[in-house]
Nucleic acid binder design. Structure first.
Lengths: 239, 239, 239, 239
DNA sequence: AATGAATGAGTGTTCATTCAT
DNA sequence: TATGAATGAACACTCATTCAT
């Protein structure tokens, strides 16, 4: 996160810095998402943000820096918006489902920006790229905690947590990355419901499955997935 | 795939065209993979390929066209290299596992190029992008056939084929995209073995699981995943 | 010396104007000397002077104006500091030597600024450049007066005064301009002593030379130059 | 002397390189001399040279590099053009006079460029500046050789050669640097004649002075300087 | 068929200058 | 008076593309 190069003209008012950066980043995320990093010019960002080109360089070191902060802005929203969505949800299985649901929802709201992250992370200078990866890892940890709670509570059998978490991550990201192929077949709700059936349910213990079914009964959001038929039966059997 | 504009200088000898294009694309894929599309110059490609810059414009319409064919070259390798790896494999479950294994192996050999595809597809003009997506869909169909055969043969329960296939696709791609996070924890073999445990095994019927176990006994490649213990038990229960 | 354009904000308090200008010019001379005119920014000058950029434009018309006054500041120091150094020195030959010595000493203290004058005078707008040249001419006149007094007193033979004075000027300036080449071979004192031997002594009459020798005997500053041996002898001969 | 940065497009044809560089440098020297380094734009140089801006970067690394080579071009002319002017001149005193004469003539032809060297050498990056200084030192050596020959032949008394040479150098350069002040008082011929009277004649031995006088009688170029009358007398006296 | 010199539009970035506060 | 945020014109430099040879 490089500071502006010509330090002499650094803006000092902290509140203003926050506002201006947000204003410029909003424009940048939009344009980068639409057209990609290299085909977006600083002057377009300036126009979109309603400021002059020079101003951007009072708040960012260079174009690369604008990209870095744009990506961080996106990745930090994953990290910041998942926890509030889990608040008040007590049961580990429910929390896990809710986390996946939340992740997918957030991605849905940031579809283009998510694609941007995949396109552009490698455009960053190596040292800056590291910062972005760390953001991703922090988000993963949120999911990992959910998985662990399920296992610790006996709701999920022993699995390779790390890899399972990555399934959740790629599943969520795929909603953006493969939206062109998925949108005609799935609504977001349907997509998540299927995801739960594919990536959560199979690893639940009988106890875990009961919790899932109970949750499903209560929730309109999670339409029963078509896939769920057989396991549901098995789920009922032990009851 | 726009043809060069100045038709009069278009090269006509079909064999030569093939060779030259291959020669240039090899260089392009290498450089695009290493440095990305926008930071690779035509000049660098020419140098890497051992030809002049002018020549490139006799075999490709423009830089965008070089990218398109580079991406197609990569995506076509998925499509072309999976089938030979399935040859002689008869059992549907084994075929599915082999397909996943093959896909991951190919991605492993084209790691940078796979990342390139994610970075650069959006850099293509819209009409060209469609061509690339069709290549991906054709590859998906290979996997889908394997899944269908499993279901048809009663080795796998009813699942949302389409989505499951996409899990296989993203799982394979993730080996490239998230290699920075995965490489310290998994060998390729371990990764695929875990993938089978996570994305194939849970959806197998008792019959299917027996086939998988039998295959595992015969195959050194697919190390038993640690995750697999419990399901094996459950597998016996319904029997 | 163009005045600021927006007259309404022109500062009027004469004392303040003097102080502020001095404060800013001190910073400007330092920075211009170190880094040159074009690579010094107004922002840097403001920072160095401890004021805001805007303030500079209340005391100077534009950047060019800051340069003009910076150069004048330097050139005026030549003009102002030579006379006090001659005070109390009565003998014309001694006054001439002292003037050269003074000039070189002042240049030594303003080495970078002297280089600046050579670098940047041409950067001034033509009309402003004239002002700077006049400053130089006034300084030259100080030296010219010394030469004239020597000739008038019979201490120096008829020479082209004007050109001889320019020898003194370029000799003094060379201490700054060619310092990179001279510093390893001469101390300032040695340099001036040699200069006297080269540019004053040869033009002295016998009477003048006696005065020079007498001065040399009294002064530690002017080490006998190695060059001086022979002429000294000749000087004694006619005695 | 940095080579072009984007090496891929370096021009290879050696003859062409020579021509193009000369063509561009001619334009650069002209413009830099007229307007200075910083106020001359690459695009102006391109226009003056009749080429495109891009082309300049195929023959020069950057603008700084164009300046370096411009300065070298000028300084090398001193070095290269003085020796031919000395050819056939046998007598050491005559050679020395001729060298000063030659130097001043060359400076006269490169007046603006000489000023440029003073203005712009400091604009070069430090490592490149060294190269320019070395060129100057090589030229100085030409003069130094002449001085030495005079001393060795007993035509000139012992003097601080190094400093005397620098007097010749600054004297010659002054013709350009102070041309605004000198032109109204001296023709070039007069200037050199006076210079010989001030900076050569006083250090000649009787033998040397005879040689000088003989030369003066033969040469129209060197008008007798008004200054010279008296010393000529003195020259006879010690004889 | 092949070359590579030449082009010039386009980009990131800087900085003198203004002006609302 | 003084500030410093904001402006935007200007510049060095790049590189896809062309075309004479």
């Amino acid at each position: 996160m490089k500071l502006p190069g010509h330090v002499e003209s650094l803006v000092t008012d902290a509140k203003l810095v926050g506002e201006r950066r947000a204003q410029i980043l909003r424009a940048a995320v939009k344009l980068f998402s639409d057209k990609g990093y290299y085909t977006t010019t600083i002057s377009q960002i300036a126009r979109e943000a309603g400021v002059s080109t020079g101003l951007i360089y009072q708040y960012f070191g260079d174009k690369d820096d604008v990209l870095l902060l744009s990506l961080k802005l996106v990745l930090e929203r994953y990290e910041k918006e998942i926890p509030p969505r889990l608040e008040g949800v007590k049961h580990p299985v429910e929390r896990l489902c809710m986390a996946l649901w939340a992740y997918c929802t957030i991605v849905d709201g940031l579809r283009e920006a998510t694609v941007l992250a995949y396109r552009s992370t490698k455009s960053l200078r190596a040292d800056r790229r590291t910062l972005v990866k760390q953001d991703e890892l922090r988000t993963n940890r949120l999911l990992q905690d959910c998985v662990r709670a399920c296992i610790a509570g006996g709701y999920m059998r022993q699995v390779n947590e790390y890899l399972l978490v990555y399934q959740y991550v790629t599943f969520s990201h795929a909603w953006a990355l493969k939206h062109w192929a998925l949108r005609s077949r799935f609504s977001l709700g349907k997509y998540v419901a299927e995801g739960i059936g594919l990536l959560i349910e199979p690893f639940l213990t009988a106890k875990g499955r009961r919790a899932l079914d109970s949750m499903r009964r209560r929730t309109a959001n999670f339409t029963r997935s078509a896939t769920r038929t057989k396991p549901a039966k098995r789920a009922r059997a032990p009851a």
